[in-house]
Every structure is written in structure tokens, then in C-alpha cells.
Amino acid sequence: MLSTLEVTTVVIVGLMVGVEFSVAFVLNRVIDALPEDSAQQAHAHGGRMLGAVMPVWYVGSLVLVAVWAVAGRDGTGLLVTAAALLVLSVIMSLLLLVPINNRNKTWTPENRPADWRQQLDRWARYHYGRLALIAAAFALLAVARG
């Protein structure tokens, strides 16, 4: 049973890292290459769609790591560190990324602010930091599973 929990946790966190990696290095670049109105609308749609899914994924991942740490006997230090990194990523999301995303997902070409691109660039910079945290957590989980 513990083995199933470990594998499930590593896979779910790994998929989350993959999605966030693709947002950072693929999707945002594709969207930014679109004409201005289309790019802004695509960012808003992505913000609505992923903004609904990712909170559940982040918190669910953290819960899985916590359950693994409580149920497991080996690698607890790695698991606690991974959990701390995931907690930090959630805090970072709530304080830095979510406020920008909440504004972004309501913008249209008619009501977007003049600095909309700068705000999305700031979101992207914060996203790189969050991605580094969850990727490090994933690596620790993979080693703990080892």
C-alpha cells in the first residue's frame, strides 16, 4: 500500500512539474507570438482554465506528500523538505501569482490595462521561481522513493 502511495505521489507531482514547465517554456511563448488581442485573450483563457485546476493539484500534491511522510519510515527528511518546498510554492502562488492571474482572467481587449504585458511578464518571472521549487520537491520525492 505504501509503495502505491509513493508512486502515485511521485507521478502526480511529476505531472504537475511537467505542466508548469510546459506553461513556462512552451505555452507562454506560443501565446506571446500571437497577435496582441489574441495573445491577451489566450492568456486570460489559460488563467481561467489552469486557475481552476492548479490549486487542487498543488494542495492535493502536498496532502499526498504529508500522508507519505506520516506513513513512511524511510526518507522522512527528504519528504519533509519536499513538503516544505511545496508549502512555499503554495504561499508564493497565493501572494504573488494568484493576484495577477485573478486580474488577467477578467481582461478583454476592451478593458485590459495599458501595462497588461508587464503584469504577465512579472507573473512569468514568479512562475519560474515557483517551478524551481516544485521541481526541487519532485527531485526529492524521486530520491526518497529511490
Rank of each mutant, 00 (worst) to 15 (best):
S22L: 15
Y58G: 07
R48Y: 14
T106E: 14
A135F: 03
A82C: 06
G77Q: 13
L88Q: 09
R29T: 08
I31S: 05
L64N: 02
Q119W: 05
F21R: 08
Q41A: 14
S61F: 01
Q40N: 04
H45I: 10
L141Q: 05
I100H: 09
H45R: 13
E110L: 09
A144H: 07
S93N: 15
L27M: 15
G60W: 00
L94E: 15
S22Y: 13
A71Q: 05
M92E: 14
V143L: 07
L96R: 12
V63R: 07
A84C: 11
M54F: 14
V19R: 02
A24P: 00
S89T: 07
G47I: 00
V98N: 11
E6F: 05
W57S: 01
A83T: 06
L2C: 13
T108E: 10
F21A: 14
V30K: 07
W107P: 01
T76R: 10
Q118S: 10
W68G: 11
R125I: 11
W57Q: 07
P109H: 04
H127L: 05
V17A: 05
L2P: 06
G146L: 10
E20I: 09
P113V: 08
L133H: 01
V23M: 14
I31T: 02
S38H: 09
S22Q: 12
E6G: 09
L62R: 03
L50R: 02
A42W: 02
R130K: 06
F21Y: 14
A42N: 04
Q41Y: 04
S89I: 01
K105L: 15
T8N: 12
